[in-house]
Design a protein around this nucleic acid. Structure first.
Lengths: 339, 339
DNA sequence: CAGATTGGGCGAACCGGTTCGACGATTCTC
DNA sequence: GAGAATCGTCGAACCGGTTCGCCCAATCTG
């Protein structure tokens, strides 16, 4: 292993001079700088990350906490992860991926041992047990997902309320007067998936405002329950002309269900979901949707996190809670209801 | 920040004694050990990862290189990643996720700076540019995916040849005599995705052996091309009674395509894919499939990697190339062809 | 009971970087 | 031309762990 000492010797200078020549933190003559750079190239020197972390107390690594819970739709999570990882790299940071079942203790381990300079938490719940740990940690943290208490943390999320209103308004404008909203499984809500009722409550309120009947129900997360549940809904509410999906698994299952019933969107039923464009392409989903912008959210979280890591004042700066405005991607799966 | 010096002082011993008490590498009296442990708990001590890495040259981190290339089916990759990450954690290692576009230089950065004790490469191509870098690295590496040259590395992959034969034999036994095999896009093959032609060649050979006509074609990776291409195939080979899919995007798109044509599996067409059970559930795919076992492969790779990291003899031990035997998961999407 | 062995603890060195203070040689200033 | 400021470099200390060698006391051996 080649150390900075080797470089210094090869360049005929002291270790400190070599260090300064590389970091540029003090004036060094052009000639010496050249000799040091040559030596680096010739010897193939790369600083030892552990040693540097010890000396500077900066690891240039950010921790990414992703929990894959039951009833959670894993592929959707991946998009957030990639947004985080790619953005981190652009900003000079590597990503430590933590998928522990026990998020709180994993978080403690990572932060206490100073493995990371900051943390991004995905899939944050209303009353997330990881948050007290994160607040107590010496590193700053950014969340993707809105918890009940945002204090001391930067928070990024889709504006699910607005998304709910948009779905209802869109259908209402087309002339629909009876809709079904399929949310995530009840289990997700019980676990604190606040975004589920944020969208649902706003949708219900907007429906009342517009004089639209909205049947809000919890969906399922896996086959064959998803399909059965969708069939059940369409049986129960035969007069509903529009379907709103805040549930990726239901969206993925819908093509088959519609096929089995001999229905077509938007001719027989208008459909609108809430998922990312990437998701729609990958899953071949032909339904219009509210863009959930996972890559953008991951990116925003990392940007803010790094800003905080690198700012002198650090945690003193005011914390932000920022919502991404939902946008409707039209895939022609909605139309005026059949009369 | 509480250091081992603080612990030692609180316990009334020297730093070295505290260290030995915690590591157990030398005999320490029960009484002192107790005092040290108490101090650890009272002060909330956690060793600094950087310092430990510097002293021991062990980071307890493994690097996970995942590349998300164009035409690659990202959700499938996630399962490998989780297999790796979860297994690493079970064995006491954290996971550094690297998703750089330029895998080779990212790999060099990670290895040269000694951020990791070993590496797992996903999605390994026939002539992967990352392999020379990995072989030159001081850390051991394990691959998921079979390259042309396996020397100096532990390699794990599905037995795609056997998978191809199984698909053909299964259909042949049911009485099918004309089949279509949809592979990944040609682009994937050109980039060195050897598994594509490993399955395809074996399937073609087996088809010849059984006297079955097999139309092997490259598929697409995205909508709407995937759907169009499937329609085109079914138009081109109207007498084919069975469909083999070595292409996740095609599998995900098939339900809609069959719906549009008014076909049902297995009544009108027998279908068999190659993907994981998890994938089938998440994507609501009703087709029988050859299990691709991504979690198992990730697990095997990490196990072997850690074994090598922790073995005294390290890279001297013989390297392994291990294939997972494909298994057919029956989802009732195949039957005897209509006469 | 002298001498060897063992158990338990300490001090110091080391891992590979960064950074502070000091210092000699120039250059600047009046 | 003396004193101050600047430039370029070096030595030493430090970050927070681990580990080697040594030493003292207690126990074991014959």
């Amino acid at each position: 292993m080649v150390t900075i000492g080797d470089v210094a010797r090869a360049a005929g200078v002291s270790r400190s001079t070599a260090s300064y020549a590389l970091s540029g933190k003090r004036a060094i003559s052009a000639e010496v700088r050249q000799r040091v750079n040559d030596a680096v190239l010739r010897l193939g020197y790369t600083p030892n990350a552990g040693a540097r972390a010890l000396a500077t107390s900066q690891t240039m690594v950010i921790g990414l906490l992703a929990q894959f819970l039951e009833d959670e739709f894993a592929p959707a999570m991946l998009e957030y992860m990639l947004g985080v990882s790619d953005t981190a790299r652009e900003l000079g940071y590597d990503t430590l991926l933590v998928t522990d079942g026990d998020g709180a203790s994993a978080l403690r381990r990572i932060t206490d041992s100073r493995m990371v300079d900051g943390l991004v938490l995905l899939n944050v719940a209303q009353d997330d047990v990881r948050l007290p740990v994160l607040r107590a940690a010496p590193q700053p943290g950014a969340l993707v997902g809105l918890p009940g208490d945002c204090s001391g943390l930067d928070v990024f999320d889709l504006d699910f309320e607005e998304a709910g209103r948009m779905m209802v308004d869109h259908m209402h404008r087309l002339g629909h007067r009876e809709l079904i909203l399929v949310s995530q499984p009840e289990h997700v809500v019980e676990r604190g998936g606040a975004y589920v009722w944020r969208l649902q409550d706003a949708a219900l309120q907007q429906a009342r405002l517009r004089g639209v009947t909205l049947h809000a129900v919890f969906g399922e997360s896996r086959q064959p329950a998803v399909g059965r549940s969708l069939h059940g809904l369409l049986d129960t509410y035969p007069d509903a002309t529009g379907l709103l999906l805040n549930n990726e698994a239901a969206a993925a299952a819908l093509p088959t269900v519609l096929h089995e019933r001999g229905l077509t969107a938007p001719d027989d039923l208008s459909v609108i979901g809430r998922y990312s464009d990437e998701f729609a392409r990958v899953f071949s989903l032909p339904y219009s949707s509210i863009e959930s912008a996972p890559d953008r959210l991951g990116r925003m979280a990392v940007r803010q996190l790094v800003r905080r890591i690198e700012s002198e004042t650090g945690r003193a700066e005011p914390y932000v809670v920022r919502f991404v405005a939902p946008e409707l991607v039209d895939r022609k799966s909605t139309a005026a209801p059949r009369t």
